[in-house]
Write a protein that binds this DNA or RNA. Structure first.
Length: 187
DNA sequence: ATTTTCAAT
């Protein structure tokens, strides 16, 4: 039994405001959240799917949020030839292992485009983590740091906002640093 | 000012 085999619909505002800010030093953020949107063109209609994954913490079956998504997606969408538009909003950027798995995933789904917005860069000073991001980029993944528009989009679609309007608080604290660092890594 | 960051003394 795996409690995170299916995505959550939404997360609490408190969780969002703790887990998602653009921080260079993000102490205590020992989880990763992945909000996703899947758009599929299927003949004359298209449909969409939304949800949130979090990494699994069971010591006997740890699973990064990205791996949770990939296994769910393969199960949910076995039709590999269709056109898919997938967007991720991640609190931490992918580790090298997940980056490799995403590249393999994109080789399976040839007509799938993936855009990743990440709030923070996970171990960005480690060369192997930098390489992982480059591999994603080379595989055609759109990579960006989450900014105000993405935070607002996530608030509206993935948070139990209870009709409260989005307030940016200090979500953007280290945005400039992280955006510059990402450009430097991908250059 | 610093990196502890997909947890676990």
């Amino acid at each position: 039994y795996c409690p995170w085999r299916n995505p959550m619909h939404r997360i609490d505002p408190k969780t969002f405001h703790f887990q998602f800010p653009n921080l260079r030093y993000a102490s205590g953020r020992k989880l990763c959240y992945l909000c996703f949107q899947v758009e599929r063109d299927y003949f004359y209609y298209n449909d969409s799917d939304w949800g949130v994954f979090r990494n699994k913490v069971h010591p006997w079956a740890p699973c990064h949020a990205e791996q949770c998504f990939l296994s769910w997606f393969r199960d949910q969408y076995p039709y590999r030839d269709e056109d898919y538009n997938v967007t991720w909003f991640l609190s931490w950027s992918p580790c090298p292992t997940c980056a490799e798995e995403v590249v393999e995933f994109l080789e399976e789904y040839r007509n799938l485009t993936l855009s990743i917005f990440t709030s923070r860069l996970y171990y960005f000073w480690h060369p192997s983590y930098q390489e992982g991001l480059c591999k994603l980029w080379d595989a055609g993944v759109q990579l960006d740091i989450m900014s105000c528009d993405e935070f607002e989009y996530c608030w509206d679609n993935f948070v139990y906002h209870k009709r409260k309007r989005f307030q940016r608080w200090n979500l953007l604290k280290d945005y400039d640093f992280l955006a510059a660092k990402l450009q430097e890594i991908l250059r």
